[in-house]
Design a protein around this nucleic acid. Sequence first.
DNA 1: CGCTTCATTGATCAATCTCAACTCGCGTGG
DNA 2: CCACGCGAGTTGAGATTGATCAATGAAGCG
Lengths: 254, 254
Amino acid sequence: MTTAYVYARPQVSTGVRQRSGCAQCHAHEFTFCHALAKATAMSGLRMLGPTPDVHTVAPRRIICREQDVLAHVPVICSGWAASAVMLSDGSRQILSFLLPGDLVSTALLFEPKPNCFVEAITKVTYRAFNRTDLKVAMFSDPDTAAQLAHLWIDEKRRADETIVDLGRRSASERIARLILGLVERLQNRNMTMGGAFEVEFPLRQHHIADATGLTPVHVSKLLSEFRRNGLIRLSERSLAILDLAGFRAVADVR
Amino acid sequence: MTTAYVYARPQVSTGVRQRSGCAQCHAHEFTFCHALAKATAMSGLRMLGPTPDVHTVAPRRIICREQDVLAHVPVICSGWAASAVMLSDGSRQILSFLLPGDLVSTALLFEPKPNCFVEAITKVTYRAFNRTDLKVAMFSDPDTAAQLAHLWIDEKRRADETIVDLGRRSASERIARLILGLVERLQNRNMTMGGAFEVEFPLRQHHIADATGLTPVHVSKLLSEFRRNGLIRLSERSLAILDLAGFRAVADVR
DNA sequence: CGCTTCATTGATCAATCTCAACTCGCGTGG
DNA sequence: CCACGCGAGTTGAGATTGATCAATGAAGCG
């Protein structure tokens, strides 16, 4: 077992509200919100109320907790967050990283209780859609339903992949696969910088450790090894994959 | 990393068909099928065609493969199965065990491709529901939709728990939690024998190993330890938890 | 009867954790 | 401006968990 990395309990965000349009959302046109807006517009109905307010939370603040009962479904507009579970010994497991455009969890569409807590990694803005509105939209518009089904399938596929990674892959493989998965998701959102394999990368090594089931110490050693072998460049909150083939080889099946 | 436990590629089942009623299903009244039948009956519509035929597959045979394109959604009627992923080095990770009443995967309601293969552990019978029928039922009947949403949430919750177990728990904890989880699911289905904590248990040690990310050798050693400590009795395909408090302590957070 | 699968057990090995010391940058308060 | 503490990252030495290898036996089955 991993030892307890005891985290100070972060304060719950006050959820500062701001008004602003969806237009500036990094990932708007690639994700759920867009489809939702389109479906709503096309059907001619105002199924959804006015676009919900934007909430802003600072890094390391909690967006929602495990025991919360949410009347709304948060959708990340900007920034990175993590959904995670805390163990009683103080260690934690990150279930998934949330990027702009991501629903916190599709399960929240049907159930008010997330079974994990969600913490901002960078400064995060999100909108909280009303659950009942979303349900109505979903049942009355097949397009929206299909879109949500797609999100669901994708969420589940990634969870299953995580299970395989944690169950059957070495530390280097886990880290490499995590990074490649994140880069791919950023590419899908047009969130790369310069080259397609250079991205902003706000994760701390302890985030990587908590997502891969390793210790921060070991993560540090393996990242150094990756750097030493010319596979990646990682510094100043930015990441570049220098040797894609080589890095994929590390990530893959051994 | 775990080494390659290379499995012989099992033959695909011929899917022998049989006629028989849902009544004899072990778990009918506790699960999805029941709700579906009720919803269909109440609405007065024949949304679903006649109850689908029962397919029977022998132990160790494949129910569906990763690359299959399924026109239907299999629901287990009797027996145990496992959904799993195979790695290129021949090792495998079991994603979940399927018990009577379980849908193979709720994702199959929306997408014809399972992203894992499903293998019978015991002799298994299952019914293959037509996907389009199910969708129609789901969209026209809120009860059915709620039922499916519940399945989906439950499936995701279990996947998330598996991630936590594999990422942050010791070998003994993983095994104990797996067993407790299965016993609980069997209890929910009224599938216990004698005492509430005595059940039929067809899993081989390699199933436990593949589900917990361990080696069969290590599983054997830890199960022996559990027995030595008077926590469980496990033999002849039957399992009893002898010291529930003690076993829970092993399973829990340490 | 011989084959295969499954389980057990012991000896040894390797991956990863643990502990500890040190550096660096940053924000804060004196 | 400086001292300080804190979070983050690095590095090395040693401990531990679980994997690997190997030998053995029991059970099921053609």
